[in-house]
Design a binder for these strands. Structure first.
Lengths: 188, 188, 188, 188
DNA sequence: GTGTAATCGAGACGGTACGTCCAGTCTTACA
DNA sequence: TGTAAGACTGGACGTACCGTCTCGATTACAC
């Protein structure tokens, strides 16, 4: 079990510098405009070091974005029984997290990476849609509306995605109303 | 003021061949993998001819996709007064159009093009979100629920976008339920 | 048979600029230190343009050197019957051509290229050794010493090669004496 | 003054394995194609160990080649007084050594290394040209033809060099005749 | 008909990013 | 301290593609 690795160990410093540089540059210039040469230079790292750990620009961006940004989910872990309050709480938290940071821009980068790299797409789903769907499902099932769980998740994921993709801030602010409509529309 | 053009006129045949080749290749290999050299070869057209009509690969893809695919909207032109029936009709039509063809794949290409080219993004919004929002707004206002118009549009656009982006067929089939929830949740 | 080429024709300006830049940089920094990036920049040419016309750095250097430098041979075209005078004349001419210019440095570059690229080696032989051997052979045969032709060529080629490779100026100046020894040693 | 070394002593085994691996690989693939990674792997040695003994790839190749191959000279240590016999003896010995082994290929590697590394060039001259010149000079001076010593050395070095560089086997076999011409041409 | 001028297919051009490869250095654990 | 292993920075390599430019050939309109 000792595995006793041999040779120089991976430089955590380099890995973190690359991830940070990637985030900074993606935010500054957008996903498509960023090049690995720039990232390597900004991270003060050899280009080969990047390729040693990520097999493509897409995989790197997916990692860089997910590592720091994606924690939209873990709030609605235990439904309180009050569906409306649970959803509002979660949604407001998500909006806040998206608003304060440059998270939306990073998500867009992730979306672009997903278009090229299937693994990035899978990671994005796993980190974004799946937990959200699970949380929403738990909340709905605990209030006896389990049959609407998937639809509710569709709606919430879709609305957030749309607000991100289209850079539509008003839509972001209307998400609270979406929750109300959802709660009311799935009653009985 | 006649403007009487001189010289060889542009070839409509070439323009159409390019659009068709673009669609075919985007469907076959995806947006990122397609190159203008391939498109030009498939369309039996010189590369410069493409640039005479479109200023970039992104603009071309936007045109190619929008020209054929994007007619999600014109169905709900006149609200009948029955909100639920109007929305269902429109939504079922949209789903059908998305299901039978490779429309979803083309939308994804359009999304990718939008990430690089602002004009493509604007065109996508103009052709996809705006008409949808207008139609939904008209339907809601004609039934006295105008204050929910934007939210309803957010929800429908978002749900469709999500189904497209994530290639989630079940979600596509649940859109009818979304309409029901929406109608019920915005009552009174 | 007209061949009537289609497409943009090759840019002679670019070709000449690349060859000149190659010569300049090889003289300035030596063969091994020169990179195609530098050559492309100095010639104000795209890198791909170089690769379009030469399949490697070696082939380019061979071309660049041979294009301008290699005219050691054509002097001894018609043997006069006086072997000693013919050889001296040719040898002095060769030495002069090697001395005044940077020819020796270019030859060394060519030699280095030949080590990597067989085609370059063949071209070097064809342009340097073969004509020299032919001229020497003609001179020897016309004076009834044909059986020494090859040996004489070996000697003269070798002596010049050595003077080039080892940057041995005194050896260069002794070539006249070599001719005398050669003429005397092959008499009768 | 004891200098009493501390720590693990250097491994002579490693040094010899590196030299042997270098020779093998240079012979198998040529100088330019060989990499230090390959050499280290073949010698079952760490890469750093190589750099502890040699400061560059060129220095290593120079050492590897010279260590085994270069002993062209020591035969004509004491001139016998019979110039022709001395030269023939030496030359035949040299040819034999060059023919049986892969010495010519190794020389070419050495030549390539010399192009990059001045020290390698100096070592090559010291090991190849200088002793040869000394031996030839001794032989010529002991027979009263001292004034031809340098020229004779030029010729013999050049002829051998040419045979090596151009892979010209016939030229190698004509070296005996060169000696005859040289002896005859420098008489009186 | 003939001239003129813009378009056409073809393909080279400058430029730039990619992903690979290697040299020479550095950092581990082990001997 | 020397060693094998292997990651590190740095930078050249050769390929691919973009958007532009330059050919000869084509094609419509103006004369």
């Amino acid at each position: 079990m000792s595995a006793s690795r041999v040779g120089r160990p991976r430089s955590e410093r380099a890995r973190l510098a690359v991830l940070q540089a990637t985030r900074d540059l993606v935010l500054a210039h957008g996903y498509e405009a960023v090049t690995l040469v720039e990232i390597a230079a900004a991270a003060e790292v050899g280009r080969q070091t990047i390729y040693r750990w990520w097999r493509s620009k897409e995989a790197l961006v997916a990692d860089a974005v997910l590592e720091q940004t994606l924690s939209l989910d873990p709030r609605v872990v235990t439904p309180s029984g009050d569906l409306s309050r649970d959803l509002h709480e979660w949604v407001e938290d998500s909006i806040a997290r998206m608003a304060d940071s440059d998270a939306a821009a990073l998500y867009r980068a992730l979306l672009a990476a997903s278009a090229v790299d299937d693994a990035a797409a899978a990671r994005m789903t796993a980190a974004f849609s799946d937990p959200l769907r699970a949380a929403v499902t738990a909340a709905f099932e605990s209030t006896g509306r389990g049959r609407y769980a998937d639809v509710a998740a569709d709606v919430l994921i879709g609305v957030m995605l749309n607000a991100i993709v289209t850079r539509d801030t008003p839509a972001r602010e209307r998400i609270g109303v979406v929750v109300d409509v959802l709660v009311r529309g799935t009653a009985e």
